[in-house]
Amino acid sequence: MKKIIALVLTLVLALSLASCGNTFDPAEKSEGVMTYAEYAAAELDTEVVIEAYVQATQSWWDNKITVYAADPDGAYFIYEMACSEADSKKLTEGTKIKVTGTKGAWEGEVEIMDATFEFVGAADHTYVATAFDATSIAGDEDALLAHQNELVTFKGATVEAISFKNDGGDDIYLTAKVGNTTIDFCVEKYLTGPETEVYKAVEALEVGDVIDIECFLYWYKGANPHVVGVTAK
């Protein structure tokens, strides 16, 4: 009997150890890859190598794709990364990629440009960021900058204006007041096009509506978040 108990305990221990070896830490980086802090500290126009998880992508075209990515410590905007159409379909939410490119700034948006990538990590080791509530720092540009490109929410925003870049079907410019600060949001058609729920929801908004906005904190001469969700209050 003792032998059996000992055998069972040994097996349980072995199994536990095996599963321990598979513990998934989304913040873990491979050899030679920058931490988010290192990436943030890197000079502009220098090469960066990061690992992050796809949060969303804009539509693929011309063998390139723009990716919103994040790890538990921060977020990245990867502009027009070289990508085949077949690979673009595998860039689903949570997928881990290793990206090599150059850190640049375009109209204030810090991004990775001229990037290439490879898929890394186990397929089930995914990570999806939780939105950071930026409502209280809406009026503090420096504080917002610290969260650039992250998925954030602004709660209780009042719609001030809605217009289209060109016409229905194109980008929607949503101006909303958060606290005492007016922020220009954008429903980017290549991220959330006219067929998406969020596009239809924003299209139907009226001035004065109070909403919660979920968005990637994109920058264009100031905060210009790309909207991915709105909820009417």
Partner: peptide
């Protein structure tokens, strides 16, 4: 039926 673009490259593609 009108479809609008702001980029010649996108039209081409």
């Amino acid at each position: 039926k009108l479809t609008l673009y702001t980029d010649y490259g996108r039209i081409y593609s």
